[in-house]
């Protein structure tokens, strides 16, 4: 069980590919910073490899004007939820 943290927008498709290679069936992906743009419906293909096990950091999505535009498949978590995810998953790995 691993939590993957991603902070780059979907235009870094090589990064998303490398992450998908390491992503396991019980893993979760948290989109922070510019990775919030991956939570837009138009970017759904960039998240296809992650099987709906994806959340986005609400404060980063909000500051970017993305609340209300996000894909229904992506869960919103606040900063406390971010900490809680790192506590739930024994390992975290940051991709950038």
């Amino acid at each position: 069980m691993m939590l993957h943290l991603l902070n780059r927008s979907p235009q870094f498709d090589g990064l998303y590919w490398d992450l998908s290679e390491a992503f396991g069936a019980d893993d979760h992906l948290l989109l922070i910073e510019d990775a919030c743009y991956a939570a837009l419906p138009a970017a759904a293909a960039s998240l296809a490899a992650f099987g709906g096990r994806v959340s986005v950091l609400s404060e980063d999505a909000e500051s970017r004007g993305l609340l209300g535009r996000l894909s229904d498949d992506v869960a919103l978590v606040d900063m406390a939820g971010f900490v809680a995810l790192t506590a739930t998953f024994p390992h975290s790995l940051s991709w950038f």
Binding site: N7, I32, E33, E59, A80, F82, V83, T86, F96
Partner: peptide, 17 residues
């Protein structure tokens, strides 16, 4: 970059919990 800010925010949220 936002990363330094994110780290400080995370640290504050972690100690708050």
């Amino acid at each position: 970059e936002q990363g330094a800010l994110s780290a400080l925010r995370f640290a504050q949220a972690a100690v708050a919990q």
